[in-house]
């Protein structure tokens, strides 16, 4: 099947067909009895959307690229976020498009992409393709800009930012985030921050980012940003953790990751 054929089917079937790729979200929900689909649109054989290309200083990640593929990228925050997803088998199955479609506030891939300033490409048979900033794609808890006749086609990120990632989980591997944080800085010192599990959607902190932009990182500035972050996020209490802890950790991780960027700056721009 080609992606174009998939778009035709999507247009024809709309919400009646459950879109599936790696199945790591869809089939879990089925196994729990939360959904009972009887019609699937399977994207897992479409080679065209599995590719990762370079284009004008950007990386274009096909929506079907797996976490195993992303785990080999040089973009550090995305690589580490991808390698923190599940175990190897899950990473062989789960895709970045699926992560974006599910739009969980704990989506590790989404958080890394937000910090990298990603754009997402949505496509439909009738209306063609459209690019939008990923930040605008997330609307509310598991509610997104994706229309019933659209599929996610690709994600675009800058090719060579400096970035860092950290996730707090309850054990040494295969963790769902209690909190995760990603930061990136491009050559113009534009710095972005993003957080997971601190609200209904993967979250950016525009005010804190604004404070950073164009500035050279210093301990004082980092402290100010970390404090501002705590005010900008809106975590809740749930069975995995409390708002108090999550809010505090947003500051802590901001401070830690920005400090790493600052201290590693002399070593050059490439993400090791």
């Amino acid at each position: 099947m080609t992606f174009e054929q998939a778009l035709e089917l999507r247009s024809e079937l709309g919400a009646d067909a459950t879109v599936i790729n790696g199945g790591t979200d869809v089939v879990v929900a089925m196994n729990h009895g939360a959904i009972k689909p009887t019609c699937f649109l399977d994207l897992s054989r479409i080679k065209a959307i599995r590719k990762i290309d370079r284009e004008n200083g950007h990386l274009i990640l096909g929506a079907g690229a797996t976490f195993a593929q992303l785990g080999k990228l040089h973009v550090r925050a995305l690589r580490e976020a991808s390698l923190s997803v599940g175990g190897p088998a899950i990473r062989n199955m789960g895709t970045i498009g699926g992560n974006i479609a599910t739009a969980s506030p704990a989506g590790d891939g989404c958080v890394a992409l937000l910090a990298l300033g990603a754009d997402v490409q949505l496509a439909s048979k009738d209306r063609g393709q459209r690019w939008m900033p990923l930040v605008d794609y997330f609307i509310d808890y598991r509610k997104t800009a994706l229309a019933d006749d659209e599929l996610i086609q690709a994600v675009r990120i800058p090719n060579n930012p400096r970035s860092r990632w950290y996730k707090i989980g309850k054990r040494g591997a295969v963790n769902i985030s209690l909190v995760c944080c990603a930061v990136s800085q491009n050559e113009d010192k534009k710095t972005k921050l993003a957080f997971g599990c601190v609200g209904p959607i993967p979250k950016i902190t525009p005010k804190a980012s604004a404070l950073l932009n164009g500035e050279t990182l210093s301990p004082g500035l980092i402290d100010d940003v970390a404090n501002l972050v705590a005010q900008e996020v809106s975590p809740i209490d749930d069975q995995r953790g409390s708002a108090v802890y999550r809010r505090a950790m947003c500051s802590t991780l901001t401070r830690r990751l920005l400090t790493q960027l600052m201290e590693d700056a002399p070593k050059g721009d490439a993400d090791a």
Partner: peptide, 19 residues
């Protein structure tokens, strides 16, 4: 857990989201 250890270190009482 990380949260309980953090609360212990920082003397933050549990306002108890964890049932």
């Amino acid at each position: 857990t990380p949260e309980r250890t953090w609360r212990l270190i920082n003397d933050v009482r549990e306002n108890d989201p964890l049932t």
